[in-house]
Design a protein around this nucleic acid. Structure first.
Lengths: 339, 339
DNA sequence: GTGAAAGCGCTAACAA
DNA sequence: TTGTTAGCGCTTTCAC
């Protein structure tokens, strides 16, 4: 069986209180005792039982991470960033793929509560805000990552979607495109909304006209991207450039363009958003707005930790600047046709 | 504060033992009491504290999952499969990205032990077998998934790599290829070794000669695939087909072929292994040997659970049949050149 | 500097 | 059928 604090105490000829103090650097334990105790712990291969100490109101050193789907590269990369940051401070993270279903969210949260996690990172959409309020009522720290929630006061870290959209528009405008369309995720996804708002602003800045019927709405799936792009590209005066709200949609668009015999980037420029591994792997490599994923993970974790220590600091909202990664799916507009 | 079993007991006017019995369906609690207690639990929003009950030797309902990197699509897909299976039985899974470093493996395992996980799923290479033995000494259940360990007696679930290699060879042979090369992972990766063994057998069955200098060894990285492919394709009498030990390498090979102006599949057929999302997304879509990922996750979890219940059942090794997914990166050999 | 004892939320004998 | 009680492994007063 595993050694307990009692075993160590007995072996060292001291009381468990002294062992506990030695471990936690509390009280006053003489150097001699400390060293002796540590030596014995090593010998016995003693590891304090986190759950037991959690019972006394200490931390469990366990976090929950809610995301739509760990098998989606964007979220997998987020998860890795968080995991690395957490691991440094001895935290473990429990993964919870919600499929964006509130019912799954609730189940997962209930489970996490039972396990007394120290905090929860939420990177999934939350239709039902009651979930958050009840979490806050129970004073379990929450930070949102890569997603926002309008109503509640929650710590949040996101990329600046608006600026990302702006960057994409500037890039396309700079290449001389004037007939541009957008492939968007559901309107209710706030980040998509912001990206498009920024994109439109960018177009406007460049005095490029834009009409909302140039937006196709899709779900977060490659085949949806194909469908949406098909709709847009099938029109009479088809666009020379496409802004897609994420890489997955952009890939769908690339596939559809190929199917239609439209060359990317010669006849159609495509820009994505996220800069996941997928963007680097497709052909041509995708020009895309890169979210600072690693940094987001780091900030989110830090925010959560800060919350554990200082009772309740004022809620922060950290907005990180995205960056345009120019690859080969965009090129100058062939000829600026007079409409 | 969160309600405890005492609160419920007080409210219901019974003892905590009765509440406990009601919850766990133990002892004899009258229907009336049961119902009353459950109603009160609901009212108070009571959730039993898993950690406390774990202290009494019950399960923690938490598992550890060791994989090289959650941001790698193959492992992310494995993780998702396991998570889904686990979630159904109220288990949580802690993700541990090891980067294949033994030092990280050890740290993670120590952490998992402190948290009293019920079991550990290992999908990462293990150079140091002592890790496993010490785990077994502490009687914490382990099952290997998608990786093997020679020495130890451990429950294992893997795809049949040998057969997978065989399938790839048959496919290529059937298309008339005769000059075939291999892009392999490090020799010490046992699955790679098996895949190649199967592949060679397949070639032999088809009476296609093969020499080991047609194998390039790479690490698990796209750029490594490029390098390895470059080496193979730069030779005088270059191969008309390439078998790659995994999708990532295959993608590197595709990129290198493109750089060299070699058309896939017209001038070069490529087959990968794993069938991750990447295979579906590249252009041309990759013909690849699909590992039955979802099923592997399911079996691995079941094996682990079985271990928790029956003290120590005999060690099993479950081998799942892979499947060839034919897409567009393979085509008939242009002309069977006489050498 | 060190230890005795109470208690965290729960389960499991054993009594009643 | 229900309650009393003694832990599980640990932290934390509070004496000594």
């Amino acid at each position: 069986m595993k050694a307990t604090i009692y075993d160590v105490a007995r072996e060292a000829g001291v009381s468990i209180a002294t062992v506990s103090n030695a471990i936690n650097g509390k009280g006053n334990v003489s150097k001699k005792r400390r060293d002796q105790i540590f030596k014995i712990m090593e010998q016995m291969n003693y590891q304090p039982n986190v759950n037991a100490s959690a019972l006394m109101g200490k931390k469990t050193y366990t976090l929950g991470l809610l995301i739509p789907d760990i098998s989606n590269p964007f979220f997998a990369e987020i998860a890795r960033a968080i995991e690395d940051e957490a691991h440094q401070l001895n935290y473990s993270v429990i993964m919870c793929s919600t499929d964006n279903k509130d019912e799954r969210v609730e189940r997962y949260i209930a489970l996490l509560e039972q396990k007394n996690v120290d905090g929860i990172l939420i990177g999934t959409g939350l239709d039902n805000l009651d979930i958050l309020t009840s979490l806050q009522a129970r004073t379990i720290p929450v930070v949102m990552i890569a997603r926002e929630t309008s109503a509640l006061e929650v710590d949040t870290v996101v990329a600046d979607d608006y600026v990302g959209g702006l960057m994409a528009a500037r890039h396309l405008a700079g290449l001389g495109h004037r007939r541009i369309a957008i492939l968007s995720e559901q309107w209710k996804v706030s980040s998509a909304r912001e990206r498009i708002r920024g994109f439109k602003q960018g177009l406007q800045d460049a005095q490029i006209p834009f009409d909302d019927d140039q937006i196709a709405i899709c779900n977060y799936l490659i085949e949806e991207g194909r469908r949406g792009a098909g709709e847009l590209l099938g029109r009479a005066h088809r666009p020379t450039a496409l802004f897609c709200c994420n890489d997955v949609l952009a890939i769908g668009a690339m596939q559809e363009a190929r199917r239609l015999g439209i060359k990317v980037p010669e006849e159609l420029s495509i820009v994505g958003f996220d800069d996941t591994i997928l963007a680097a792997v497709v052909d041509p490599p995708l020009t895309t707005v890169a979210q600072p994923i690693v940094n987001m993970g780091k900030q989110a974790f830090r925010l959560l930790i800060a919350h554990l220590d200082e009772a309740d600091s004022v809620k922060k909202r950290i907005v990180l600047r995205p960056e345009l990664t120019i690859r080969q799916s965009t090129a100058p507009a062939a000829n600026i046709s007079v409409e």
